[in-house]
Design a binder for these strands. Structure first.
Lengths: 155, 155
DNA sequence: GGAAATTACTTCGAGACTCGAATCAACGTA
DNA sequence: TACGTTGATTCGAGTCTCGAAGTAATTTCC
């Protein structure tokens, strides 16, 4: 039985992810970040409203206790601050500190420099993004999944 | 600063990976597999020569102790068998058992059924595969990385 | 207004995952 | 035969993830 195109796509896409993680490992270590904390940091956009723990758990596909654990590390490293949401005092919102913003920018810059996708031409990237958008859009509607990865973009 | 297309691609691709892992979690649990053991199982192709520990560590982007740990679980669950490579008695090769082959087939089938990529048309999948091949091919040459994910394919 | 259910989060305990250091057996070479 | 190298394992430590249980704040419903 030979391999379908779908299987080849899944395997290749996974390979890109693993390769990327492998390549940025040294940069994360320099910043005092682990893969999990780096990912959490990435998903806090300093230009948007501070996300709640619930929102972050959703974005990270992890459960609440796990996010508490990750957040503790980020707070300890002084990359984020927990504060009570005045609108709902059960909820805690996460805001980046100044060094958190710097670390986040470093992680993103390193990733974009080292990702295998960086080899693609702008035209190929646009085509790839079109396909990824098509891949994710129906899924989000269907599952009510995390915030779409396909937000505002500037070529 | 708005987000580049490259960043959007990286984020979307990562989102697909996480979404896939999330969706197949129940199937893995049913099979008595964890994400790590399932990934290892996937990367042992029963139609090819049994890979050595070194080869598997390379494919999984992990180090030797970690692979020993994962392999122990797979051997314990009787999905794979360790045997000494007669050609080099330092080396151990991994072969799938019958139930290992079944579990592997189940994991792959579930993944292909649940991956967001499954929504793409055959034409889109071919186009996507072309871009992923382009993404990975030069990287493999440059790093001497793991076995390419772009092997024989049948539409 | 107040009891009951719900929601957001945390703590705790257990197990999975990953790594570096140290060790061992087998191979290659001189 | 002695020496350096290689493939794998064991060990200890730290990270990651989850379910169960608990706390505080909110909402619902009478």
């Amino acid at each position: 039985m030979t391999r379908s195109i779908l299987e080849a796509v899944v395997v290749a896409s996974h390979e890109v992810s693993m390769l990327t993680g492998d390549r940025i490992a040294a940069v994360l270590a320099e910043q005092g970040l682990t893969p999990a904390t780096a990912q959490a940091l990435w998903l806090i956009d300093p230009d948007e409203a501070p996300p709640s723990m619930k929102t972050m758990a959703h974005r990270l596909f992890c459960n609440a206790p796990n996010l508490s654990f990750i957040t503790n590390q980020l707070v300890e490293r002084e990359f984020v601050e927990r504060s009570v949401d005045p609108a709902d005092r059960r909820s805690r919102v996460l805001t980046l500190t100044e060094s958190g913003r710097r670390a986040r920018a470093t992680v993103i810059a390193a990733t974009l420099a080292l990702t295998p996708f960086a080899r693609l031409s702008p035209e190929d990237l646009r085509e790839l993004m079109k396909l990824l958008r098509k891949t994710l859009e129906p899924a989000d509607q269907e599952t009510g999944g995390p915030a779409a990865a396909t937000g505002e973009i500037q070529g």
